[in-house]
Design a protein around this nucleic acid. Structure first.
Lengths: 235, 235
DNA sequence: GTTCATTTGTACGTATGTATA
DNA sequence: CTATACATACGTACAAATGAA
């Protein structure tokens, strides 16, 4: 068996086709038998892929009727394809990034776990501020698996764009695998960076980004100024 | 085949045993082979049950090692089909609701807009607390379009369950259309209800629920105790 | 460090039940 | 009523990760 399960590749293909409106919302997918033929696999392998899409809310199956597209994965604040600057630009604001720190150090426990690394492995750390119209609205720290992404640190220093830097390190595309959201009090450092009073609430999100094939490429923590940002989740 | 799938019965049995701490958090479940023997079914039927538990976050499997009861804090899955109590129960906690207020009054501006109502229309207001293992973790206020849901107020008073009350008012199914998430400081009232110190951070979510046909049926605002809950978004 | 039994993951195959159109 | 399509359940085989000998 391949390292990357066949069912995952099928799920990814179908997801793309749904996103591209080949199967628009409400449409019926080809039958399991037809999909088995198309991908040259057993029906149960297709079912595994459909089950994955169903779990994630993309499709819904009705016994005897078929499998139907439930929602469409689009770009929104909290979604599978989050690109921070794109969102702000879409909202008519001027996005900007300020780099605070780029360094390489051993992975911490939670980071190693999220990135599927050994404890000894090194990570590239990228800390900075996101501004909108000149006002700081978020403070972020991203860690990347250094070994898997040669030249990333240099690329980050040059471009400041995560997407662009990852592209230069060989990662053409990535998607958000999970996001955790909680509320915290701003630490003294954050309060300083975000121009908040001490103890004001911040939105803390911890997210994991992966390649379409499932290799973790980033674990990002972002602290949003609670009163300047609202995350929106469609669906 | 029976109307009630075997795998569901097995999942239910295991869920109960986990909730009763026969398998405490962190413990390893019997192997798939052992469970097959115990329930007298094929290994794949056991796997279907375990997959269900895994989906709901009760267990996590490690290839080569076994299936382990997940040590979950109260993670709240943020998805298209959110049912608050189901989530807590899935995490092995005892969910409970306390009704603070049920009343009917004219819609406010934001409510009317979200529910697609005239300003003069009336809404049913349902305010209460959600508890987990006896500890308040959220304070909520839901408003419903009164005219569209005859008998809802009475049903809410009886069952306290939104899903059940909506079912009695003729809404068999509903999905979350949108969620807005922000961080705030707890008001004095919320601090009291949630047992927080004044000014502690709370996660505020505003969501709109619709029927599958797109008719708005609920606008809910929930304030979570920031340190007791983390919202999780898969995908 | 290597080997090896154990355990979960993937994939295919077959049969039958049940809801839908 | 019938054909179609998804759901359940059994089975076999091998891959891949784990952990202990």
């Amino acid at each position: 068996m391949p390292r990357n399960p066949v069912w995952k590749a099928i799920a990814k293909t179908l997801e793309t086709e749904i996103a591209e409106r080949l199967y628009p919302p409400g449409a019926r997918l080809p039958t399991e038998a037809a999909l088995s033929d198309r991908f040259g696999v057993n029906r149960h392998t297709v079912r595994r892929a459909l089950s994955d899409l169903s779990e994630r809310g993309l499709v819904r199956s009705r016994r005897g009727a078929g499998v139907f597209v439930d929602i469409v994965p689009t770009d929104y604040a909290l979604g599978r394809r989050v690109r921070f600057h794109q969102n702000l630009r879409a909202a008519g604001h001027l996005p900007e990034k300020r780099v605070l720190r780029i360094e390489t150090r051993p992975a911490r426990r939670a980071e190693a776990e999220a990135l599927d690394l050994d404890r000894e492995s090194e990570v590239v750390v990228y800390e900075g501020l996101s501004l909108s119209d000149g006002i700081a609205i978020a403070h972020f720290e991203s860690v990347f698996p250094a070994a898997r992404l040669p030249g990333l640190a240099a690329a980050l220093a040059e471009t400041a764009s995560v997407t662009e830097a990852l592209a230069r390190a060989g990662v053409a595309d990535y998607v958000r695998a999970e996001t955790r959201i909680s509320a915290e009090r701003a630490s003294a450092t954050q309060a300083l960076h975000l121009g908040l009073r001490d103890g004001e609430p911040v939105l803390c999100t911890i997210s994991r980004n992966e390649t379409p094939e499932g290799m973790p490429v980033e674990r990002g923590t972002t602290w949003f100024a609670g009163d300047r940002v609202a995350l929106v989740h469609a669906g």
